[in-house]
Simulated assay, not measured.
Amino acid sequence: MTKVYTHMTMSLDGFIADPTDQPAELFDWYGAGDVTVPSANDHVSFNVDPTSAELLREFTTNTGALIAGRRLFDIANGWGDSHPVGAPVVVVTHQPPSDTTPWPRTTFVNGVEPAITRAKQIANGKDICIASADIARQALQLGLVDEVCVSLVPVIFGEGIPYLAGLPGAHHLLQDPVVLQGHRALHLRYQVRH
Rank of each mutant, 00 (worst) to 15 (best):
V4G: 04
T6V: 11
M8C: 12
L12S: 09
G14V: 08
G14P: 13
I16N: 02
I16C: 05
I16Y: 01
A17Q: 06
A17G: 10
A24L: 12
L26P: 08
F27C: 01
G33F: 01
D34A: 13
V35E: 13
T36C: 12
P38K: 12
P38W: 08
P38Q: 09
S39N: 04
A40V: 00
H43A: 14
H43R: 13
S45A: 11
F46E: 12
V48P: 07
P50I: 08
T51P: 05
G64P: 07
A65E: 01
I67E: 00
R70V: 07
R71E: 10
I75S: 10
D81R: 01
D81K: 01
H83Q: 10
P84M: 03
P84T: 08
A87H: 06
P88M: 04
P88F: 03
V89R: 01
V90R: 00
V92N: 01
T93W: 00
H94N: 06
P96D: 04
P104A: 04
P104C: 03
P104W: 03
T106I: 06
T107P: 04
F108R: 03
N110D: 15
G111W: 10
R118V: 13
A119C: 03
K120D: 01
I122H: 05
G125W: 05
G125D: 06
K126C: 02
K126Y: 07
D127Y: 07
D127W: 10
A131Q: 11
S132H: 07
Q138G: 02
L142P: 00
G143H: 02
E147V: 13
E147L: 04
V148I: 13
C149K: 13
V150T: 12
V150G: 03
I156P: 05
F157I: 05
F157G: 02
F157M: 12
E159Y: 06
I161E: 13
L167Y: 04
P168R: 09
H171T: 08
H172I: 15
L174S: 04
Q181G: 13
Q181Y: 14
H183K: 15
R184H: 15
R184I: 12
L186E: 12
R189I: 08
V192G: 04
H194Q: 09
